[in-house]
C-alpha cells in the first residue's frame, strides 16, 4: 500500500488577474522505503504539489482532489490533525536553509522544540536526542553547534540542521524540496549520501523535488517529470534515464552538459521558454516548444497513460505504443 497517495490534485491561486492553476490533475504515490524524484523547472508546480499535500499553501491557494497519508486524508484534515502528523510522521525539508530557521533562536532550541511538541520529551532527553541527531547528519562538534544561532553556521551546516530537524521524530516520509540546491558539490555529495543511508537503513521514504537530473539519477527509485503544472512522464529512473520518451524529458536530458560525455560544440536546447501559467497554450502545454509536435497537439490535451514502460502524456508516444 502506498504511504502517500495523491489523486487528481489541483491547486489554484486566486490572483488579481484571475485564477491560476499551479497544479492540474496530478496523481502520484510514494511507497514505503522508496525515493520518488520530482523533476521540473520553475513554475512547473513541483513544489506547490507538496505544499498543498502538507497543508502549507499560501492564503490565496486552494487545493482539490485527494491526498492520503496512510489512513488520513490530508486535504480535509483540520489543523489539529495535521499538526500531529506534520513534523512527526511526515516532514518537509525546505530549500533555503537560512529562511527556514528562525534567526533569533538558538539551533538547539529549534531542534528540541520539535521533540518536546511531538514526543513530550523533557529538556535533558530532548537535548541528548537533538545532539545525537546533529552528529548523525555529520555536523562536526554538535554540542557547540547546538548553542549557536543560525547565522553563525555556514550554508552547508544550516542545511544539515534543517535536515536533522526533519528527521528528529523518525518520520516515515520526508519531502525534501531542493535540499542541495544551495550547497557546494562536495557538501551536496555528503547530504545525498546521508539521505541514501537513511533510506537503506531506516526504510525512510523520500520525495526529492529538484531541477537537477543528476541528483535524481543517483538517489531516486522512480521519477515524475512535471511541466506547466502537470506530470508529463513518470517511471523508474532506469527507464526514464535510459530511454526517455516524452519530448520534454528527452530535451531536458539532452540540454544538460554532463561529465561522462565528451564535450560537444553546442548544447542541445529546448527552444522558447516555459509558458505563463495564466495563459497556457491550448492542447498540450509543451507543444509550442516541441520539436515533434503534430496535428492533435495544439487541439487536444494528451492524457497521462501507460505507453511503453512509462506513464506518458504525449500523442506521439501514444501512437507509437499503439502500433
Amino acid at each position: 500500500m502506498a504511504l502517500l497517495d495523491i489523486q487528481n490534485l489541483t491547486v489554484k491561486f486566486a490572483t488579481q488577474d484571475g485564477e491560476v492553476s499551479a497544479v492540474s490533475d496530478v496523481s502520484l504515490h510514494v511507497n514505503k522505503g522508496e525515493c520518488l524524484g520530482i523533476v521540473g523547472e520553475s513554475g512547473s508546480g513541483k513544489s506547490q504539489t507538496f505544499m498543498a499535500a502538507m497543508g502549507l499553501l499560501a492564503g490565496n491557494g486552494k487545493a482539490s482532489g485527494s491526498v492520503r497519508f496512510g489512513d488520513t486524508e490530508l486535504l480535509t484534515a483540520n489543523e489539529r490533525t495535521l499538526n500531529t502528523i506534520r513534523g512527526n510522521k511526515l516532514a518537509m525539508v525546505f530549500q533555503d536553509p537560512m529562511t527556514s530557521l528562525t534567526p533569533h533562536m538558538r539551533v538547539g532550541r529549534q531542534l528540541t522544540e520539535v521533540l518536546q511538541r511531538h514526543r513530550g520529551l523533557d529538556n535533558a532527553a530532548a537535548r541528548a536526542a537533538a545532539i545525537a541527531m546533529l552528529a548523525r547528519v555529520q555536523v562536526p562538534e554538535p554540542e557547540r553547534r547546538f548553542q549557536m544561532y543560525p547565522h553563525e553556521l555556514s550554508g552547508g551546516l544550516r542545511q544539515r540542521v534543517v535536515l536533522a530537524m526533519g528527521l528528529l521524530c523518525g518520520p516515515e516520509l520526508v519531502i525534501a524540496d531542493e535540499p542541495t540546491t544551495a550547497l557546494d558539490v562536495t557538501v551536496q555529495a555528503l547530504v545525498l549520501e546521508l539521505i541514501r543511508e537513511l533510506k537503506d537503513t531506516q526504510g525512510t521514504s523520500f520525495v526529492l523535488i529538484t531541477h537537477d537530473l543528476g541528483v535524481v539519477a543517483g538517489l531516486a527509485d522512480r521519477v515524475a517529470v512535471m511541466y506547466a503544472g502537470r506530470i508529463v512522464e513518470s517511471g523508474t529512473v532506469d527507464e526514464i534515464f535510459a530511454a526517455p520518451k516524452h519530448p520534454y524529458t528527452k530535451g531536458l536530458l539532452a540540454c544538460t552538459p554532463r561529465l561522462d560525455d565528451p564535450p560537444t560544440v553546442l548544447l542541445e536546447t529546448i527552444p522558447g521558454q516555459p509558458p505563463n501559467l495564466q495563459n497556457l497554450p491550448t492542447g498540450c502545454s509543451f507543444h509550442p516548444r516541441c520539436v515533434s509536435a503534430f496535428e492533435p497537439c495544439p487541439v487536444k490535451r494528451p492524457l497521462l497513460v501507460p505507453a511503453g514502460n512509462t506513464l506518458n502524456a504525449c500523442f506521439l508516444n501514444h501512437m507509437q505504443a499503439a502500433s
Binding site: Q188, A189, L192, V215, G218, F241, L253, R258, D260
Partner: peptide, 15 residues
C-alpha cells in the same frame, strides 16, 4: 574530489 562529487544523470553510472 570536486569532479567525483558532480552528479551524473545516469542511474547506472551513478550507482
Amino acid at each position: 574530489a570536486l569532479l567525483a562529487a558532480v552528479p551524473v544523470p545516469d542511474p547506472v553510472k551513478a550507482r
